[in-house]
Nucleic acid binder design. Sequence first.
DNA 1: GCAGGATACCTCGAACTAAAAGGTATTACA
DNA 2: TGTAATACCTTTTAGTTCGAGGTATCCTGC
Lengths: 112, 112
Amino acid sequence: MAQSNPPFMSGVPELLLLRLLDQSEMYGYELVRSIKTATGEAISLGEGVIYPVLHSLERNGALKSRRKAVGGRTRVYYSLTAKGRQRLDKLRNEWHRVQGGVASALAAGGHA
Amino acid sequence: MAQSNPPFMSGVPELLLLRLLDQSEMYGYELVRSIKTATGEAISLGEGVIYPVLHSLERNGALKSRRKAVGGRTRVYYSLTAKGRQRLDKLRNEWHRVQGGVASALAAGGHA
DNA sequence: GCAGGATACCTCGAACTAAAAGGTATTACA
DNA sequence: TGTAATACCTTTTAGTTCGAGGTATCCTGC
């Protein structure tokens, strides 16, 4: 039956998106740049990552969107729903768990 | 030509393996359990993950192995080469970068 | 007036990783 | 004798992320 859990360390893009959108409403193109700056250039996610995640989060009811015309162009602004805030908490905890686990493993026994 | 870089956050299994093997020689089946305990149960990787990584690291010259018969069963012990130590350093740095990036993003602006 | 770059949206295909399950063989123990 | 644990391994499947491509508008410089 091969019913596979998601990779133990995925969902970081999702976590970052939710985190940023929790602070303020944003649109996709903006998020692409925000992720870069918010992570101090450490992480850079392309549009091919951002948009699909945005759409799937909206389908799941974690995000809601509204279109806004700005200077002739249309932007789609996303913001968190209650469900999205729950999801954010969950992913944040997941992350801390994993991050802590790796830290333990790296720390153990000083280093030779 | 669609020449894709590895996902920005992969190589954690590899990092853990190298880290443990840097501390002491170990065999595959043992590593499966060690990863679990070393990460405080936070991360659990099956044999289907461990063995392929071990083999590919050996092919790349990052690990060397020796067979040892223990009580009728054969164990394959792996240990780091100089190249493996370099690889470990590199992955450790990568991890710190990414981990730091996520931390920045999560910390920014306190929270609401 | 038009070329080029930035803004803004989106999707598809390929690549890669990791998960789960299955396969072999030996030892230990009940 | 049969079941669980040890120890190795591979193959199949699933899931994520990457890169590139595609459309359209706006602004700037020439």
